[in-house]
């Protein structure tokens, strides 16, 4: 089966001008991700796990290497060199990114956040409202919270909202950036259920996690990052 995502010799170095320093983050990373597959990457803080996801999502610029993505719109596309407008399109319609942090406009309710995501797909307001209710219910966000601002939500609640927002776009590829970090055991269990649920819908996922136990039996393949290298 053709890979949905193929990373070839990805390296990322940060140049800090004021310190006159170059910091190597990820080095010579190569991974293939097939449609419907879930790959998990573990590793210590600072090992370069997030860097991989951020290079795919183009929050970071790739220094060396290629990130080939099989786009529905553009065909085979190197995300390392795609135009900014192509990346905006992909973020809108094809690639989702979920982290433990919810980065949204202030003074926007949980319901509006998910609706906005649906509206961006070109749906009508009525459709967006209906879809938002469906998603918030599906991902178990307490209806009492739907019309509240999420800045005061617990980590688990923010994560559920974050996933509902990302899934509103029905992404072909979902990037999970340490969604369980700083969550308690009960919340982690909920996240595990969410991921199992996403897997059952055939969503292709690349996730990074802090703890190995969490990933046991969940991922199709598992890697460990050490000092910027994948083992």
């Amino acid at each position: 089966m053709e890979a949905l995502l193929k990373i070839e010799n990805l390296s990322k170095t940060f140049t800090l001008h004021h310190l006159d320093k170059h910091i190597k983050a990820s080095q010579n990373i190569s991974i293939d991700l097939k449609p419907g597959e879930f790959i998990g990457i573990t590793g210590r803080s600072g090992s370069g796990k997030s860097t991989i996801l951020k290079c795919i999502y183009r929050t970071y610029l790739t220094a060396v290497g290629d990130i080939w993505y099989d786009s529905e719109k553009f065909g085979r596309l190197n995300l390392a060199t795609a135009t900014e407008r192509q990346m905006i399109y992909l973020r809108k319609y094809e690639i989702g990114y979920v982290s433990q942090f919810l980065n949204v406009m202030p003074r926007t309710t949980a319901r509006q956040i998910v609706e906005e995501s649906v509206l961006q797909m070109g749906k009508t307001l009525a459709e967006a409202q209906k879809e938002a209710i469906k998603l918030l219910t599906h991902f178990n966000l307490d209806p009492e919270l739907w019309d509240s601002y999420p800045q005061k939500f617990s980590g688990g609640e923010q994560l559920r909202l974050n996933i509902a927002r990302a899934m509103a776009k029905r992404p072909r590829l979902l990037l999970l950036d340490e969604p369980t970090a700083s969550l308690d055991a009960a919340s982690k269990l909920k996240v595990r259920e969410l991921i199992e649920d996403l897997k059952s819908t055939g969503t292709t996922m690349l996730g990074i996690f802090h703890d190995i136990e969490f990933m046991e039996g969940l991922c199709d393949r598992q890697f460990n990052m050490e000092a910027g290298n994948l083992r």
Partner: peptide, 22 residues
């Protein structure tokens, strides 16, 4: 420098942009 806004804020390339973001 130009780029996606989150890239400019999280991975600025130019010395001046890094100062601005810092």
């Amino acid at each position: 420098e130009s780029g996606l806004t989150d890239q400019i804020l999280e991975d600025p390339q130019h010395e001046y942009t890094q100062q601005l973001v810092n």
